[in-house]
Design a protein around this nucleic acid. Structure first.
Lengths: 213, 213
DNA sequence: GAAATTCTTGACCGAACGGACAGGTTTGAT
DNA sequence: ATCAAACCTGTCCGTTCGGTCAAGAATTTC
């Protein structure tokens, strides 16, 4: 057999990671306590230490799961084969879906950045930076082919991340200002299409009629 | 005389608020310790307790100074008398300047929102909400006068805040991806004009030739 | 089925936490 | 010059922090 083995270790580790993510999201690394984390997992503190050694070990494990998520959206949508109208719209919608379905992941990443990225500096400066360079080349290619205006591609990406992730990171503010206890699907769809339109029109993306030149 | 009195209390309070802001920005409310805060102010812990009672009292005082800053930018720029080309550009540039000059203020606000706004829920749901309603009316007026496209005004504001504040909150990420130790004026100007262009073109703002209709 | 390994847990530890407070010092009004 | 009010701070306190450990329970291995 292949998948269904599910050793005790693997099961426990996955359970702890899933259960503690909301606690790290709510209190940050420094603010979360081992007692809270253990309570969220329904286990004694010593059990978390058995599997992850230290609080930082647990936090890094949670972070690594999030970083894996982070890089994949772009690779699917920001590619030369697509027209930018399709690429940007798809990318923005994918990021917005992430903000809706995994807000805690976004918040943990946001907290890590707010603190100066003490645990993921290497990731930012190497993996993320390389990936951004590739994406920037794709966007510049679109501009060169006359499919959109000349826009600084890296700052454009920063701004797309900012807009999409604000719906996860700062959703308290959004709910408070909208006067809603929770953001329903219709409201979220409005938000998504507002961001899509801002990006497409903001970049002067030509309508994608017919095939690519 | 009027200003130059500067009682000991006032001087001390202002000094402590200014000195502790970076500590709260770096570690958040929960992560900052009274010992760190006191060390940053160059005073014994007991001194901070003398003026602010508790850690939370000090934090709230810092927060209130920030909130006062927060609401004023919009009132100057998002007004019916201006053409949206001027209004949005001025507002974005003002917010970007804030991100450059008071990044710690933005980070403390961001941290508070990430934690679910435990100390400023009232502010969000009342003052901020009222202000946003007014701004939304101005933007809808611009649309009604044919000066820009129909864009959901509240989500537009969320996105402007997201883009401008990302340059304060997540500047580690920006510096790491750009490969710069610090963001120089030229780079920041590029960022600012990228955001301005995204907003103006994204909202279909007509060029502001001549006077308002 | 016995031995070895892995897992679980309550009890415990020193350090660091936010805060209290008494007593000394400085300041300002009279 | 006096004195009350305001200010300053070393020291202490109970609690909570992250982490350890020994010993027992469950599981795997042979």
């Amino acid at each position: 057999m292949d998948t269904a083995v599910a050793s005790i270790r693997q099961t426990s580790v996955e359970h702890i990671l899933a259960a503690t993510e909301p606690v790290f999201a709510k209190h940050g690394f420094e603010g979360a306590t081992m007692a809270q984390l253990a309570a969220a997992a329904g286990l004694p503190k010593a059990n978390l230490h058995y599997y992850f050694g230290t609080k930082e070990g647990l936090y890094r494990a949670v972070l690594e799961g999030i970083l894996a998520l982070w890089l994949d959206d772009a690779a699917e949508w920001i590619v030369p084969e697509r027209h930018p109208a399709e690429g940007f719209a798809g990318y923005v919608r994918a990021k917005m879906t992430h903000s809706r379905e995994r807000p805690d992941a976004s918040r943990i990443f946001a907290d890590e950045l707010l603190r100066g990225a003490p645990h993921i500096m290497m990731y930012l400066g190497i993996e993320l930076r390389n990936r951004v360079t590739e994406l920037a080349a794709v966007i510049e290619g679109w501009t060169a082919r006359g499919l959109m205006d000349a826009v600084h591609p890296v700052h454009l990406l920063f701004n797309i991340w900012a807009m999409t992730q604000t719906y996860a990171d700062f959703d308290v503010q959004i709910r408070a200002v909208l006067g809603k206890v929770s953001i329903d699907d219709a409201e979220f769809a409005v938000a998504t299409e507002t961001v899509v339109a801002l990006v497409l029109k903001g970049c002067g993306v030509r309508p994608s009629e017919g095939r690519l030149p």
